[in-house]
Amino acid sequence: LKGVVVAGGVLAGAVAVASFFLRNKRR
């Protein structure tokens, strides 16, 4: 169960970083 929580956190972080980079590329 702990691994699932960690994986979810990593996935959420990756999505946040990806969206951040996409926003920067638009400018």
Rank of each mutant, 00 (worst) to 15 (best):
N24H: 15
V15F: 05
F21C: 05
G3T: 15
G9M: 14
A18C: 09
R23K: 05
A16D: 00
G13Y: 02
G8E: 04
L1F: 12
S19H: 12
V5K: 10
V6C: 10
L1Q: 01
R27C: 04
R27E: 09
G13Q: 09
G9I: 07
L22K: 06
L1H: 11
R26Q: 08
A7T: 13
V15N: 00
F20W: 09
N24A: 12
F21V: 10
V6M: 11
L11A: 03
A14I: 11
S19V: 13
G3F: 12
A7V: 14
A12T: 13
K2M: 08
S19C: 14
G9A: 08
A14V: 15
V6H: 14
F21T: 02
K25G: 12
A18E: 00
A16S: 07
G9L: 07
F20I: 10
R26E: 10
F20S: 03
V5Q: 05
N24K: 09
L1G: 05
G3Q: 12
G8F: 09
K2V: 08
A14L: 08
G3I: 15
R23S: 07
V5Y: 00
R23L: 13
V6K: 14
L22W: 05
L1C: 13
K25L: 15
F20Y: 05
A12H: 05
G13P: 01
V5W: 03
K25D: 08
A16V: 04
G13L: 08
R23Q: 05
K25M: 11
A14G: 04
G13F: 13
V5D: 01
V6G: 03
G9C: 08
G9W: 01
V6R: 12
G13N: 04
K2P: 10
G3E: 06
G8R: 03
R26A: 11
F20L: 11
V5G: 07
V17F: 14
V10W: 11
L11P: 00
V4E: 02
R26M: 14
R23F: 14
A12E: 03
V17P: 00
K2N: 07
A12I: 04
A18M: 15
G13V: 08
F21K: 02
L11H: 01
K25I: 13
A12L: 04
G3H: 13
F20H: 04
G9P: 05
A16Q: 07
L11D: 00
V4R: 13
V6Q: 06
V10C: 14
R27F: 00
A16C: 07
S19F: 03
V15M: 09
R23P: 01
A16G: 05
L22F: 08
L11R: 01
K25P: 08
A7F: 13
G3L: 13
L11K: 01
R26D: 08
K2S: 10
G3P: 12
R26H: 15
G13H: 11
R26Y: 10
V5F: 08
A18V: 15
G13C: 09
V17W: 10
L11Y: 05
G8N: 06
V4M: 01
G13T: 08
V15C: 10
G3D: 06
R23C: 09
K25T: 14
G13A: 09
R27W: 10
F20G: 03
K25R: 13
R26P: 11
A14E: 00
V17E: 00
L1M: 02
G13K: 13
G8Y: 15
L22H: 04
V4S: 10
L1A: 08
A18G: 03
R23E: 02
V17L: 07
G8P: 04
R26G: 14
G8C: 09
R27M: 15
G3R: 13
G8K: 01
A7E: 03
R27G: 12
R23H: 07
V6W: 08
V10Y: 02
F20A: 08
V10E: 00
V4D: 02
V17M: 08
L11T: 02
G13W: 11
N24I: 12
G9K: 07
A18H: 03
L22N: 02
A12S: 07
G8W: 11
V5L: 04
S19M: 15
A18S: 03
L22R: 05
V4L: 12
V10A: 11
R23A: 10
G9V: 09
A12V: 09
G13R: 10
A12G: 06
A18D: 00
V10F: 15
R23M: 02
R23D: 01
F20C: 09
V5E: 03
A18W: 12
V6I: 11
N24R: 12
F20V: 09
F21R: 05
A16E: 02
A7Q: 07
G9H: 02
A14Q: 04
R26V: 15
N24E: 04
A16Y: 11
G3S: 06
A16K: 06
V5N: 03
V17G: 01
G8L: 07
R27V: 12
G8A: 07
L1T: 05
S19N: 14
L22A: 05
K2G: 07
R26K: 11
A14F: 09
S19Y: 09
V10L: 15
R23G: 05
N24T: 09
V10K: 08
V15Q: 02
N24W: 08
R27N: 13
S19E: 07
V15K: 04
A16T: 06
G8D: 03
A14M: 05
N24G: 11
V10R: 06
L22M: 10
L22C: 05
L22V: 06
A7G: 09
G3K: 11
R26N: 10
V15Y: 13
R26W: 14
G3M: 15
V4I: 07
A18Y: 10
F21P: 00
A12D: 01
F21Y: 08
A16M: 05
V6L: 11
R27S: 15
L1Y: 02
L11S: 01
